[in-house]
Amino acid sequence: MANEPLFLNLDDEDPESIYQLFESRGWGDGLPLIAPTMERVDEALSHVQASPEEVLTVLPPRGGSATYRDVAVNSVLAGCKPEYFPVVVTAVKALGEQKINLRGVNTTTHPVAPLLVIHGRAVEEIGFNAGLGTFGPGNRANATVGRAIRLILLHIAGAIPGPGDASTQGQPSKYTYCIAENQEESPWESYPESLGVDSGSALTVHCGENPHNFHDMESKNIERILDKAASSMTTFGVNNACISGGEWFVILCPEHAATAFNQGWGRKDVSEYLFEKARMPAGEFRKQFELLAWADWMKSLSDREMVPMTQDVENIKVIVSGGAGKHSCVVPSWGMTRSVTLPIEI
């Protein structure tokens, strides 16, 4: 159990005061903050059945203990409404899973950020935007839940650019990175259901790059659309090019997903098509990289044989999100991390 909460004194309620206090201590993400008063933090905590002092997980590299109270403090700072708190808690639990490899995610030179995807009832009940502009801006739930996670990584995990985060250039999604699955317009079962996660609401964390857009306004067959996705995936610039265990999240807009469905395709068919189509000759990889963290079967391929952008078709994940218009995207992972999907208790 952690000790009693630590308090700070603010001279007044002027928003500039907390801004200055946090700046002086090297805290914050550079944007204005909501003061985490006792009343606001307690209101957030009232949305979970847990002791405020219970430790959810310990976050590297700093090794800070993330108690429910600490997580609530950062949720308030980010501007979350109290009812968002169970979602933030679930995201922190997911980040604590070993296969996320949070120490690596936080400290690498790569510009990786945790992408949160909200599924199920929580989307409507809490008010996430799964439709037009899901990546932002403009929706409080998407913006502040994603931001709360970044503040938790900065303050509790110590992922501060420089001492705790070596990312060479950073990336905009390190401010906030949260979308929602558009189940209403998806032709398929929900993503958590496809994984066997049986829950009314759930959350996925995938640690990756910013979205790589692909568009196709004119094709009437899904193969021609997915050829653009494959084109976005076949690049030497991503970590997944030299690390074969990486995952790819393919975020299809509803119209592209409908085209696939109308041809009788399931999400597995999409993954299998991209596994076969998003390939480059082994010799080209070998020209580009001296170190290839490849699966053994890939290492044995001749220079002329085609290598997929990941070693296993299961590493290509398909989610429907966004609104009208024919833009979709792929989100390549950092490479040495695996996504996690957990139920949300609301």
């Binding site: 630590l6 308090f7 800070g64 108690t67 303050h155």
Partner: peptide, 15 residues
């Protein structure tokens, strides 16, 4: 008016 707010850092459990 003076006000109290929570620290955002969380304690270090590991030595």
């Amino acid at each position: 008016m003076n006000m109290k707010i929570h620290s955002p850092e969380g304690e270090l459990l590991e030595e």
